[in-house]
Structure formats: structure tokens, C-alpha cells
Computed example of a mutant assay.
Amino acid sequence: MSADVQSSDKPPFRLGTAVHVGRPTVIVESRGSLYRLAELLPAAVPPESSVLDLIGDGWDAVLDQIAGVLASGPPAEPLDEGSLQWQAPVMHPRKLICIGTNYKDHIREMGFSLDALSAYPYSFLAPPSTTLVGTGQQVAVPAIAERIDWEAEVAVVIGRPARDVKAADAAAHVVGFAVLNDLSARDWSGPNAPAVGIDWVMTKAYDGFKPMAPFITPARFVAAPEKLWVRSWVNGRLKQDGTTGDMVFDFWQIIEHLSRIMTLEPGDVIATGTPAGVGHGRRPPEYLTAGDHVAVEVESLGRVETTLVGRGPAPSAAPAGAAAAEGRT
């Protein structure tokens, strides 16, 4: 399961988390080679750690040290990727915040008018400790859901506390960008949606429903985040092919909005929405089943691959609710 990026514009290095010899450790990827950070910079982090342990006031200093070590020749042999089990790069952030209806083409495919949108980003929370998993891991189809969908997304990772931050200043609070697949159960959309609105827990919060690509790409290496292509494939067939230029609210506006509500903390992950091409928006709709393979990739940031597996028969009870309200993410 390659963690490589199919792009000619690779960053000098990226940081990820993997289990190696039974223990989580920070991995540095540089030009296709993989190294344990603990071997490149023994004083930077404890041997057992994740990228989350690096995020804070010393982040830039660590990046500078990594750049210096790589420039002079790594003092360690590259790792065999087969010896690694990739995890979500941050294990585990305090908050995982997801933005819905944030690409214009996706809004249209879901049957909404751009004129009907709110003046601020539409968001919800997901449990980070149980939904975030790494590339190559299997995700079980929930026993109570049958309409599982894919959503290719760019995630931003917060590096400095952000409270009441203006959009113009938001970039200073971001340490990097990552790739996330916001898997969704659409069973409680449309005629099955409760009268009070969509139940986001039943739609989004299942174990493993937020696979992340292995790496965080430091923000200093992402020159134009507003111009990244975002793509997904199901069983090798291209489904989504969009660009962050189609976002309704850009990364910085999202941070401004969220920081008015809550303090964004170092390591917090914000998934910023998905472009058109999801299964629920197709005619007829398409959904994932056990055995399906989903790949999500973002230009220069990385790729996450997930295989769906079964968990047994669903309960006989049908979803409750009757109001009409299409799924909004």
C-alpha cells in the first residue's frame, strides 16, 4: 500500500505516524524515502510518539532541523514501507471538525441552490479517537447502515491556539494540510431524515469513518492551497475530480468562523468539504458495499486508501423519521 503521491510537485518532506515494531513513531517522508524522526533527530520527540506531539511552539524549529539533516545526508537507512502500519498522522487530536456543503458543484449535485446557503460555513463534530484511521486499514460497514458514501477532502491542521481570529491572520495558525475521506451513511437523508434534521452521529460517527492519508504536509510547502485538485476513485474508477478553487468558504474563512465559536487548539483537524462526484449525488445513487476499495488523493498532499469489510446482518428495524431533507455534506 504505497504512501506515495502521484504528483510532480512533491514537497521536500512530510511528517506522518505509523506503527513500527509494535510502537507508534513519527515518520519523515522525503523524496520517496521513509525515516524514523527519532533516528534523524533523537532529541526531537520520544521514540513512541505521533506528529501530534510535535505540534506547538517548537514546530518550525523541528522543521528547520529536519531540513538541515536531510540536506547533509540522512544519518539513517530508509525504512521498508512494508514494516509500517500507517495511522492517522495526528493520534489523536482534541477536535475533529467537518465542514459540509462547501463546494459549489457538490451543492448543485445534491439539489441545493447556492442562493439558499447560509452566510457562514456549515459544520459538525466527529469523535477523533475512534473515527480517524490510517491508510490501508479496513473499515467495517455498519450493521445499521446500507448507503455508505465517499467524500474526498482537504484537512487543515491547527498549530497555534486560535480564538476570534480574522481570516487574514488565519494562515499563521495552521501547521499543515492533510487528506481525509469523510465516509458517510446516507440512510438518514431524504425521506428517512428525522423531522428535526439530520442526525450527524448516525451519519458520520462510525468507527473508522474518517480515514486519513499518512502525512501532514507542512504549510510552508503548500504555496497555493486554494488551487489543489481533489480526486477520489472507487474500485479504480474516477468518481470525484475537483479543485479547492470551487470552495464556497476558503480555509481561512472557515478558521475565522470556527474560532468565533470555540478555541481551536494545536493538533485540531478541520475537514473542509468535498467536491462533486459523491455517490449520493449520482443518478441513480451509488453506495459502497463490503469489498469496495476507495482511494482519495489531493495534489502534492497524499493519498488514503480504504477497503470496506462486512460486519454481519443489519437489524430488522428500519430507520425512524419521515421529513424530507437531503444529506448536506
Rank of each mutant, 00 (worst) to 15 (best):
residue 67 A to R: 08
residue 91 M to T: 13
residue 75 P to E: 04
residue 99 I to W: 04
residue 95 K to L: 08
residue 72 S to D: 14
residue 69 V to S: 01
residue 99 I to D: 05
residue 112 F to M: 13
residue 58 G to S: 11
residue 78 P to D: 02
residue 109 E to P: 12
residue 115 D to G: 12
residue 87 Q to Y: 00
residue 73 G to P: 09
residue 87 Q to N: 01
residue 115 D to E: 15
residue 72 S to K: 14
residue 99 I to R: 05
residue 101 T to G: 14
residue 101 T to E: 12
residue 112 F to Y: 15
residue 71 A to L: 04
residue 96 L to M: 05
residue 59 W to S: 11
residue 59 W to T: 11
residue 65 Q to Y: 02
residue 108 R to M: 12
residue 110 M to V: 02
residue 87 Q to W: 01
residue 56 G to V: 05
residue 117 L to P: 02
residue 82 G to R: 10
residue 78 P to R: 06
residue 58 G to I: 00
residue 78 P to Q: 03
residue 65 Q to I: 02
residue 98 C to D: 05
residue 118 S to D: 11
residue 72 S to P: 01
residue 60 D to A: 15
residue 106 H to R: 13
residue 108 R to I: 15
residue 56 G to T: 07
residue 110 M to F: 08
residue 93 P to Q: 02
residue 72 S to W: 01
residue 79 L to V: 06
residue 105 D to F: 09
residue 102 N to E: 09
residue 64 D to Q: 09
residue 95 K to E: 04
residue 101 T to I: 14
residue 75 P to L: 06
residue 105 D to S: 15
residue 56 G to E: 05
residue 80 D to A: 11
residue 116 A to R: 05
residue 109 E to S: 13
residue 108 R to C: 07
residue 73 G to I: 08
residue 113 S to D: 15
residue 111 G to A: 13
residue 81 E to Y: 01
residue 65 Q to N: 08
residue 85 Q to M: 12
residue 71 A to H: 05
residue 98 C to A: 13
residue 99 I to M: 09
residue 86 W to E: 04
residue 82 G to H: 03
residue 89 P to A: 06
residue 116 A to S: 15
residue 110 M to K: 07
residue 61 A to Y: 00
residue 68 G to M: 03
residue 62 V to N: 04
residue 87 Q to F: 01
residue 86 W to S: 08
residue 85 Q to L: 15
residue 71 A to W: 00
residue 97 I to N: 06
residue 65 Q to E: 11
residue 80 D to H: 09
residue 81 E to A: 07
residue 74 P to N: 06
residue 56 G to M: 05
residue 65 Q to C: 04
residue 94 R to I: 03
residue 93 P to I: 04
residue 115 D to T: 13
residue 118 S to E: 11
residue 86 W to G: 10
residue 69 V to C: 00
residue 105 D to I: 05
residue 87 Q to R: 03
residue 68 G to E: 10
residue 117 L to I: 10
residue 113 S to A: 15
residue 70 L to A: 09
residue 87 Q to C: 03
residue 66 I to Y: 01
residue 88 A to Q: 03
residue 84 L to M: 02
residue 72 S to T: 12
residue 92 H to Y: 14
residue 102 N to G: 10
residue 68 G to K: 05
residue 93 P to A: 06
residue 65 Q to L: 07
residue 102 N to Y: 10
residue 63 L to K: 10
residue 75 P to W: 08
residue 68 G to R: 10
residue 116 A to C: 02
residue 111 G to S: 14
residue 63 L to P: 09
residue 85 Q to H: 12
residue 82 G to L: 02
residue 67 A to S: 13
residue 69 V to A: 00
residue 83 S to F: 00
residue 63 L to W: 08
residue 117 L to C: 02
